[in-house]
Design a protein around this nucleic acid. Structure first.
Length: 526
RNA sequence: GGCCCCAUCGUCUAGUGGCCCAGGACACUGGAUUUUCAGUCCAGGUACACGGGUUCAAAUCCCGUUGGGGUCACCA
């Protein structure tokens, strides 16, 4: 019994698709569950111009999510190289073998002619099959082609009398009739292999035992199975998992611009785009145009926890039982099996992702949250210079007061009022009108409380609250008479942590300054 | 259009012939708590696509219909 070996084979495109990440995750999980190996192979037959630039973000995404690979770029391995562009001899050799055994042939038909055949078939409403003219060539004609160096491609010769089938680990028995399958090109004239061929050669050479991939590859499978057999390779197990669909749809989540525009407006997806547009510019990044929720790096940038995405992705098309939702990664590894993969496509659900995030961020200690929030404050310029003990304790106080109001680490950026100078505080217009301009007594009461506040020595939340109560009583007032005006005056916003925690965080000077500003501004508006 | 796949609440799912007039989670609605917001607690609604079989018994098995999706390259 050989050990389980799975692989994920990204093309270096410059970014990691969240749906692709889910496929990678399932491969990783199956390998880890069985104590096997997870391999990263780079499908770069397309010859990416700048490989480092195109591959970097993909590897970063794997590292961020915590998916380590046993063989592949950077780590090497016994079955290398792990870049298809460096494995040409293998493909050439395999192709030569097929050619010699008469299982593949050189097709001298120019592309235009094949295209014509295809169109003719379509017109006559019959399935297209290659006419195989090049197989009919006499020895002489063939010799002429050779000497003239006529361009050709190498096609696999499909046995049209055959049926191929697999017993898919997710889908069960699936069968195809080969009499309907055109002869696939396996090598271009220039000797570069095509995907279906290279994958088979590589999967065999890398001794992959389980090919776990998205179901859109199901239609590639018969060709690959034929190639496996023709080359005398042992067939791996296949598991075609459902693809990740766009929120609220059954259609594959796409990275194309046109689709992205639609997602931006979709009620389910909108929220994530808005987060990007709100947060990213503050960090000096270009909003959802540069980082969008189809990319893994979006979730990193915006302050999701890898554990939350890991959990959410794992639950997309897989479940442990009828009630367990929040699962730590060790638990998932331990319990992940292919037979519990769902067959139907699953839409990515931003709300659910957010709820996993809420759960996992809730598991963090205050110190951990501070650690994760600080970089956001620095990048946004709210904290400049070194993070000394004072700054750290201020941020810690804020985050503690904020409690579970911080869902994404970048949420800390909405509380800029604790970092801007008093004279730069922006008042929420609506709230200012409603709480300070409109209520007749607001300016008067604010003035009165300010005078009271400015005499306080103890500026802790607990003291301020007690003191506030006595002050209210002495003046025959209720909470509602002033507290909203006070909140808007000091923080500029209608909502936030407890009032007295806010006051403590701001400190006496700021509170007094800000109340003064608010009173002045209210008079102007009168 | 051909081939292939899929079909349970709005969404993710549990369910492998009786435990299901269908369970959980998210979202939603109402209420309670609170100085605001967030949260928390309680309550609530909503689903087996349809039609035929098989069976004492079907969300579960079979057939068909409908619907959705994937794929049909010298892309990966």
């Amino acid at each position: 019994m050989s050990t389980v070996r799975t692989r994920f084979a990204p093309s270096p495109t410059g970014f990691m698709h969240i749906g692709g990440m889910r496929t990678a995750l399932f491969n990783w999980l199956w390998a880890r569950h069985n104590g096997g190996q997870f391999i990263l192979r780079i499908d770069d037959t397309d010859q990416a111009r700048n490989l480092d630039e195109a591959l970097g973000p993909i590897l970063d995404a794997f590292r961020w999510l915590g998916l380590d690979w046993d063989e592949g770029p950077e780590v090497g391995g016994d079955h290398g190289p792990y870049f298809q562009s460096q494995r040409s001899e293998l493909y050439t050799a395999a192709c030569e073998q097929l050619l010699q055994e008469g299982k593949a042939y050189k097709d001298y038909d120019p592309p235009a002619l094949t295209q014509q055949d295809r169109e003719a078939a379509e017109k006559e409403k019959r399935p297209f099959l290659n006419i195989r003219r090049s197989l009919e060539l006499t020895d002489e004609e063939r010799a002429t082609c050779e000497t003239e160096e006529r361009p050709y491609v190498i096609r696999f010769l499909v046995n049209r009398d055959e049926k191929v089938s697999i017993d898919d680990q997710v889908r069960g028995h699936v069968e195809w009739d080969c009499s309907l399958i055109p002869d696939p090109v396996i090598m271009r004239g220039d000797g570069t292999p095509l995907y279906n061929f290279a994958t088979v050669v590589d999967d065999a050479a890398l001794e992959i035992t389980h090919v776990i991939r998205a179901e859109e590859h199901l239609s590639n499978t018969p060709v690959q199975v034929m190639l496996f057999k023709a080359l005398g390779y042992e067939l791996p197990e296949f598991a075609h998992i459902p693809f990740v669909a766009a929120p609220g749809t059954k259609a594959k989540l796409s990275k194309r611009d046109k689709a992205l525009e639609k997602y931006r407006k979709s009620p389910q997806f909108k929220k994530l785009f808005e987060i990007a547009d709100d947060v990213l510019p503050k960090l000096g990044l270009g909003g959802s145009q540069s980082l969008n929720p189809v990319m893994v790096s979006y979730y990193d940038a915006v302050g999701f926890l890898p554990d939350a995405i890991f959990n959410g992705l794992a639950r997309l098309g897989w479940s442990y039982d009828d009630k367990t939702e929040n699962m730590p990664r060790e638990f998932i590894v331990e319990n992940f099996t292919l037979d519990r993969i769902v067959k139907a496509a699953a839409g990515l659900d931003p709300d659910k992702l957010l709820s996993y995030q809420e759960h996992w961020i809730g598991q963090l200690s205050l110190e951990q949250k501070v650690e994760q929030c600080l970089p956001y404050l620095q990048k946004a310029g709210y904290i400049t210079g070194e993070v000394d003990a004072d700054v750290r304790s201020k941020v810690q106080g804020l985050i503690s007061a904020l409690g579970d109001r911080i869902k994404l680490f970048s949420d800390i950026l909405t509380y800029d009022e604790y970092f801007v100078a008093d004279e730069e505080l922006v008042y929420n217009e609506k709230a200012f009108k409603k709480r300070i301009v409109k209520p007749e007594r607001a300016p008067e009461l604010l003035t009165k409380y300010r005078d009271h506040l400015s005499q306080q020595e103890d500026f802790t939340a607990s003291f301020l609250e007690e003191d506030f109560k006595t002050w209210l009583e002495a003046n025959d007032l209720g909470y509602g008479d002033i507290i909203h005006a006070l909140r808007v005056a000091t923080t500029g916003k209608p909502a936030g942590p407890g009032m007295f925690e806010c006051l403590e965080l701001l400190g006496k000077t700021s509170c007094v300054n800000r109340i003064n500003r608010a009173i002045l501004q209210a008079e102007e508006k009168d």
